[in-house]
Simulated scan of single mutants.
Amino acid sequence: MTTLEKVSANKCFEGELTKYKFKSAALGGLSANFNLFLPPNASPSTKVPVLIYLAGLTCTEDNGAQKGSFLGPASSQGIALLFPDTSPRGAGIEGEDVDWDFGTGAGFYLNATHPKYASHYNMYTHITLELPQVIEAAGNIPIDWNRQSIFGHSMGGHGALTMYLSTQKQYRSASAFAPVSNPVNCPWGQKAFTGYLQGGIAEAKAIYDATELISKSKDPVHILVDFGTADTFYKQGQLLPENFLKAARDSNYDEFQVRVRSQDGYDHSYFFISTFASDHIHFHANFLKA
């Protein structure tokens, strides 16, 4: 039986942010950390909805919790926040620490099928299945897992959109800050997919690309995307939000179902994220509290 170990706890916005760790089966038995914020209304008799935040390249479970400006709005809305890590840590695979955009800190929220990475790099299962099961099994954490939504930044925005679109409504809504929206057509995604997946780009196209997934989707969706026009990675063609928007419109999703907003002058940083954090929390609250 998997046991959660409490690492630290801090009171904030009348709620509590707690860091936990546990041995993750999905990540090959490695120790995994996550942060969990519970709002003040959470109690043994009151389970609260949860919003999962996926961070970007080089980040950990701490970036969103400490810099995202999410906790105050989440507290006022009575929503829990779950902050997982971005990759397994300490797998000891040759080459996983050579580049900043692949390997440690860059798990790309997929399940690896290349034999070199398949034992450890299974962030898709870690996020969608393992963490909810482990937290629920603890028995003393009042989260209503029937009310989940998901959001993220950059690589984490890619993860949020693809998990939302591929899990057949495990999540009630999804949003993203500067997501890698069409990774099969950008350098970051191509590098990740050819490294982690036995079938490379072709395998990724069917499962791990938000633009490809929205083009085939027929279900109702609730998606919000923000990106900054001064974002260096946007200018370099890593994000491609226009491709995602076009695919959504071609699939007859209107602006009430898929909204993509360009924010003039904003970059890729947490200054950008924190500016629009409250917008995203309130967007998800519409669906989590229904």
Rank of each mutant, 00 (worst) to 15 (best):
K6S: 13
K6I: 10
A9D: 12
N10T: 15
K11D: 15
G15R: 07
K21Y: 04
A25R: 07
A25S: 14
L27F: 04
G29R: 00
A32G: 05
F34W: 10
N35L: 06
N35Q: 07
F37P: 01
F37A: 04
P40F: 10
N41V: 13
A42V: 04
P44I: 05
S45E: 10
T46R: 01
V48T: 08
A55R: 02
A55G: 14
A55C: 11
G56H: 02
T58Y: 03
T58Q: 02
D62I: 11
D62G: 02
N63Y: 08
Q66A: 14
Q66Y: 05
Q66H: 09
Q66T: 05
S69R: 08
G72F: 09
G72E: 13
G72Y: 05
S75T: 04
S76A: 13
Q77T: 06
Q77W: 09
G78M: 12
D85A: 10
S87M: 03
P88M: 01
G90L: 06
G90W: 12
G92L: 04
E94R: 14
D97E: 14
D99I: 08
D101L: 08
G103D: 00
G105S: 00
A106D: 09
A106Q: 06
A112T: 05
H114V: 01
Y117S: 01
Y117P: 03
S119W: 05
T128P: 03
T128R: 09
E130M: 04
L131K: 09
Q133N: 11
V134G: 04
I135K: 01
E136C: 07
R147Q: 06
S149V: 07
I150H: 03
S154C: 00
G156F: 01
G157S: 12
G157R: 13
H158L: 14
G159L: 06
K169G: 13
Y171P: 05
Y171N: 07
S175C: 06
V180M: 11
N182C: 15
N185L: 09
W188R: 11
Q190G: 13
T194Y: 07
T194S: 13
Q198E: 06
G199T: 12
G199V: 00
G199H: 08
G200Q: 05
G200S: 13
I201C: 01
A204G: 11
K205D: 15
A206K: 14
E212P: 03
K216C: 08
H222Q: 11
L224D: 02
V225K: 09
V225W: 10
F227K: 05
F227Y: 15
A230C: 00
Y234P: 00
Q236A: 10
L240F: 04
R249Y: 04
D250S: 09
N252P: 00
S262A: 15
S262G: 07
G265Y: 02
G265S: 02
G265Q: 03
Y266N: 08
T275P: 11
A277W: 01
H280M: 09
I281S: 05
H284G: 11
A285C: 03
N286E: 12
A290V: 12
